[in-house]
């Protein structure tokens, strides 16, 4: 079997999600090639060549792929993917954007957000916001798959020495163009790759109070997240949302502060190794999944926690 993994990157660096996706490819088993599509992305291709288990890196370096617009990516990946039995991409907002186009162009189903590989054609994926795990089997000649990165431990970023090969792809389809991007700037680690995540919910009462969480996070080297309730209430921007419709995280330690534990939030964090809940309502559902629960007023507990760290 030959597996194509589409790399996640920003033209400068290879993103960690790619390493989890390669791990899923390894679980399927076969020859693994990584496609780096971008503009001025030679450094990314070099990094991809070093990833353990990768045998070939294909680079499509063209202005048409600079911002990975779905229209151009879809055509390119479908074209390159024809020679493979499996085409994988991480289930990030980028992968989710172009991969269904790849599947449609190849006239095959897409298998979204797999969390486990049962065999080369059978996979597990969460449905109903993670309340049910479905096992699905595909009889399509090419399996187009997005990978939930928290389901697979990342492979080593070093240790490989794959050959790098240039590929040409279709030119810019001219259907869409990139206007701009507003990315949250932060010195803290990214939510999806952080070892520790501190999240706040509606109990935080306002955006200013998140300052307390930032202080704790900075002492722990943690990322800061939020529940949908906190995002909808306007406390913090939506890119901090952890949950079924936000980011899926699985850090070593997840500290939920003032979060009741709605199903949709649990779906985004319940695979964390250790969960701590701080909430003044002792009946909050979050305590049912927490390894350590502290029933307390967060406005007293969080500053006290910060002092002890």
């Amino acid at each position: 079997m030959a597996i194509l993994v589409v790399a996640e990157h920003d033209n400068k660096a290879l993103k960690g999600a790619t390493l989890n996706t390669v791990a899923a490819a390894k679980a399927i088993g076969g020859d693994i090639a990584v496609l780096v599509a971008g503009a001025g992305c030679a450094a990314v291709a070099e990094a991809a060549a070093k990833v353990a288990g990768v045998s070939k890196v294909l680079v499509a370096d063209n202005a048409a792929y600079a911002n990975q617009l779905a229209e151009n990516m879809g055509t390119l990946v479908a074209e390159v993917g024809k020679g493979y039995s499996h085409v994988l991409a991480p289930a990030t907002t980028s992968g989710k954007n172009f991969m269904p186009r790849v599947a449609a162009l190849l006239d095959v189903a897409q298998i979204s957000e797999i969390i486990a590989v049962e065999s080369a054609d059978t996979f597990k994926r969460p449905i109903y916001a993670g309340n049910v795990i479905a096992t699905v089997k595909s009889a399509d000649a090419i399996k187009v798959i997005t990978v939930r990165t928290t389901g697979f431990d990342a492979v080593a970023a070093e240790g490989g020495s794959a050959a790098v090969e240039a590929v040409s792809g279709p030119a810019d389809a001219g259907l869409s163009s990139f206007v701009g991007e507003e990315l949250a700037k932060s010195d803290r680690p990214e939510l999806t790759s952080a070892k520790i995540v501190v999240s706040g919910g509606r109990g935080m009462q306002n955006g200013d109070n998140f300052e307390m969480l930032y202080k704790v996070a900075d002492k722990l080297g943690a990322a800061v997240g939020a529940s949908r309730a906190a995002v909808d209430a306007g406390f913090v921007p939506n890119d901090m949302q952890v949950g079924q419709t936000g980011k899926i995280v699985a850090p070593d330690l997840y500290i939920a502060v003032g979060i009741s534990g709605a199903i949709q939030h649990l779906a985004g964090m319940k695979d964390s190794k250790v969960i701590v809940a701080i909430n003044k309502d002792e009946d909050a559902p979050i305590f049912q999944v927490a390894d350590y629960g502290l029933v307390a007023d967060l406005f007293e507990a969080v500053p006290a926690l910060e002092k002890l760290l």
Partner: peptide
Amino acid sequence: SKLTLVKVEPPAERKAGIKVESV
């Protein structure tokens, strides 16, 4: 479709841990 559902199951249960008394 060539995609078939083999089975569905509940997700792995996560057991509740302990309550601590203080920070």
